[in-house]
């Protein structure tokens, strides 16, 4: 039975007039979405990408990039990279230990489900509230500090480091460790107990097992996780800005400062150049990460 033979069906389908080009208008359904993301995602991205090459008068310039060599931007870049490396490595190490503690327990146990879902929440928990949480606990008026002080320990004897980079690193660990658990747990789950038994039946001890079997298998995914944690810390803004309101030590704060400075010197082109610098670093790290992911997939 052909469609043409039944006029009722034909009108119901409603396309006889369009004939051969019956699918030609379907793409209209995607237009609202594409227009929206075009306006509010792709346009701002293009503004950042292209705008860095123009000065306030709208003429082409490379000055914005040249300004990246200003000493305070170079310092912020180095500080942010060190901060991200430190929190990524420590976060990965501690998160790795926590993952190992989880994975050695019951796979469907309450403890595991609790830690995994808590990690899901805490990895996203950042910003103003997180900064407040640390100020309220170990800050100069926090009960941990007051308690320590009452017992003769003054950990701010050499200055209140909570409001400087070391403090920020500690605060970042609060979301870096849970992120590591989320990232690394699937890799650890892929380790088979038979491998250990095999190593032992060949006469290997615990050290041999980790050095020659589990270590090499887990290393790419561990390194990949470190890169992910790096990118995570590197692009963070809210936590840093809520905790440290003087000096803008972090690169993302420098962007904010160049965009709408409280002291007056507004340099939108320069803000775009810093943004590009940030994107370049994050992109390099992300590419390395996906390369490592591919390598990990071979074994796990």
């Amino acid at each position: 039975m052909t469609i043409a033979g039944s006029p009722a069906v034909a009108t119901n389908v409603g396309r006889p007039l369009v004939g051969g080009r019956r699918f030609s208008l379907d793409w209209l359904g995607a237009v609202p979405f594409l227009v929206y993301v075009g306006l509010f995602l792709l346009l701002p991205s293009a503004i950042v990408g292209l705008g860095a090459f123009f000065n306030a008068d709208g003429s082409f310039t490379l000055d914005n990039y040249a300004h990246l060599s200003r000493s305070y931007v170079v310092k912020a870049t180095i500080d942010t990279i060190s901060l991200s490396v430190v929190t990524a490595v420590i976060g990965a190490a501690l998160g790795g230990l926590l993952s190992y503690a989880i994975v050695t327990g019951s796979p469907n146990g309450l403890l595991r489900r609790l830690v995994v879902s808590a990690s899901g929440v805490l990895a996203q928990f950042g910003g103003v509230t997180l900064a407040f949480a640390f100020i309220a606990s170990i800050g100069p008026a926090g009960f941990v500090y007051l308690f320590a002080q009452a017992h003769g320990v003054d950990y701010y004897a050499h200055g209140i480091w909570l409001f400087e980079l070391p403090g920020l690193a500690l605060v970042y660990l609060y979301f870096q460790i849970p992120l590591m658990v989320l990232v690394f747990l699937p890799a650890l789950d892929g380790i088979k107990p038979q491998w250990r038994e095999a190593a032992e039946s060949l006469g290997g001890n615990t050290w041999h097992y980790w050095r020659h079997v589990a270590g090499p298998i887990l290393f790419p995914s561990f390194l990949g996780a470190v890169l992910l944690l790096f990118a995570n810390a590197f692009s963070a803004y809210a936590t840093a800005n809520a905790l440290i309101n003087q000096g803008q030590p972090v690169l993302s704060q420098q962007i904010g400062g160049a965009l709408s400075s409280e002291v007056g010197a507004v340099e939108p082109g320069f803000a775009k150049a810093i943004a590009i610098e940030m994107i370049v670093i994050v992109t390099i790290v992300t590419i390395l990460y996906s390369l490592l992911q591919r390598r990990t997939a071979r074994w796990l």
Partner: peptide, 18 residues
């Protein structure tokens, strides 16, 4: 998924003139 790879602070630079 693109917004995941663009840090919010970068997106805001492009949104500012808009």
């Amino acid at each position: 998924l693109l917004p995941l790879t663009i840090p919010a602070i970068v997106l805001v630079v492009g949104l500012f003139p808009m």
